[in-house]
Amino acid sequence: MTILTATGLSKRYGALTVTDNVSLSLGAGEALGIVGPNGAGKTTLFNLIAGTVRPDAGAIRFDGRDVTALPARERCHLGIARSFQIPHPFSGMTTYENVLVGAAFGRRASERASEARAVEVLELTGLKRKANTYAGDLTLLERKRLEMARALASDPRLLLLDEIAGGLTEPECVELVATINGIRAEGVSLIWIEHVVHALLAVVDRIMVIDFGRKIAEGEPRAVMESQQVAAIYMGMDAEMAHG
């Protein structure tokens, strides 16, 4: 069963095409990794799926329903949650309250259920000790973790994670991978944009490569990462030279 289908998504800003006819589909419970160089249009793809940005062309179906015209908040109510690459914490609130916002508005749960969910997520994401710290006083790493916690608190069916492993130490990275695999075990579908490839490989079922707004490769993670196109992008060589 597919939970998300995007067909022919395109987005232009003036003369610049940031998403160029991208299609993708995601099975329920599946985890998809997205890689590609900076500026390739990965985050824009998230903006399109989450509803922050409307596509110029193409359609998005979530759980059998056309959501292309729905605003971000309604997609959130349906079960699409995302973290932002550049954290957007609610600085004037505590960490707990930040997570509570996700729990209280995502599923429109009761006050008590939201509180319980928020506390549960704080424990799951290792932010329990920072519960009463103002989000504005958190370190960058903690803010990234808060991004994930807030999205998770909304009890999503599809979680979009945007570069949350960058800058982590190796033990922290292992911990993060364990947390994300724990989330997957609850049946949450996942799309994860990440440069830290070994973390990605420990989680995802499939990888998609984006460059200049286009999908240039997709498939089994290791095969994709060892392919010519990826080598060309990441090593700065063109495909012929890489194999030449």
Binding site: A50, A72, R73, H88, F90, M93, F105, G106, R150
Partner: peptide, 15 residues
């Protein structure tokens, strides 16, 4: 309070 701090994140979280 959430939307005072970030309208973008508030909207994404269902507010």
């Amino acid at each position: 309070t959430a939307l005072r701090d970030s309208e973008l994140a508030s909207e994404s979280l269902g507010i």
